[in-house]
């Protein structure tokens, strides 16, 4: 980014183009990158958790599940502030190059329940007899998981992604608090354009670009769920 230092006058381009090319696009890279990494990390954490929770052996009467959902009842701003203290205690604020990692940790922490829930609700509905049949036919547990359980839980994964990817793109409170303002994502710029720069036109332009992207991802996630086996049924969010 630092290499690209043209002033708008030199380029002679309209303001909206300038805004999109030099502000929105780099911002979207950071925001979506952050969101994608968050989603992947949370999926890797949440899938085993949801898998274990779906076995009644561990999750008697849904108590464990409640324990995972419990933090959601506290406001996420408070949780984020608490997370900051914790990270400071661990020594994650020794340098401001950790800002990005800190933001990532905060995002994963805050959105983990939203990934666990849809995965859990899908996994719990999968008929045990599928796995038994697969074992009877001589498949190893790993093969059973990869070719039976995982495809069957795909709707849960898709709905988990759609629950995390887009909100994390714009949840700038976390990046502001944990990133010390060093990580700027697209939601933050919209906020400043509206609230401190008094430039509603620019704010709306950026918001519009975001809206287009949301429609695009809606279309894509729709494609995914269509393509999956309909018999597993669409995962209800809760």
């Amino acid at each position: 980014m630092n290499g690209l230092k043209f002033s708008r006058k030199q380029l002679g381009i309209p303001y909206a183009v300038f805004l999109i090319a030099f502000v929105v696009v780099p911002l979207l890279f950071v925001s979506f990158g952050l969101a994608i990494i968050t989603t992947i990390v949370s999926l890797f954490i949440a899938y085993p958790v949801a898998y274990i929770l779906s076995k009644t052996k561990f999750n008697k009467g849904g108590v464990l599940l409640i324990l995972f959902i419990l933090p959601l009842w506290i406001n996420f701003v408070l949780r984020t502030a608490a997370m900051k203290e914790l990270l400071y205690f661990v020594g994650m604020y020794k340098s401001n190059s950790f800002s990005f990692i800190n933001t990532l940790i905060g995002m994963v922490y805050d959105y983990l329940p939203f990934v666990i829930m849809p995965l859990y609700s899908v996994l719990v509905k999968i008929d045990k007899s599928y796995a038994e049949a697969s074992a009877d036919l001589g498949a190893k547990p790993v093969t059973t998981f990869l070719s039976v359980t995982l495809p069957l839980s795909m709707p849960g994964i898709v709905s988990a992604i759609s629950m995390v990817l887009l909100p994390t793109t714009t949840s700038y409170v976390i990046s502001d608090t944990l990133g010390n303002g060093n990580v700027t994502i697209v939601g933050k710029i919209i906020e400043t354009q509206f609230l401190t720069m008094d430039n509603w036109h620019a704010g709306s332009t950026i918001a519009l670009v975001l809206l287009v992207i949301i429609f695009l991802s809606m279309f894509l996630s729709g494609k995914f769920t269509e393509a999956e086996d309909e018999s597993a049924g669409r995962a209800n969010l809760w």
Binding site: M1, N2, F22, V23, P26, L27, F29, V30, F32, G33, L34, I37, N96, S97, S99, F100, T103, N182, V183, T184, I189
Partner: peptide, 9 residues
């Protein structure tokens, strides 16, 4: 916007 996270992302 010239964020430190760019290179990682």
């Amino acid at each position: 916007v010239s964020s430190s996270g760019m290179s990682m992302v």
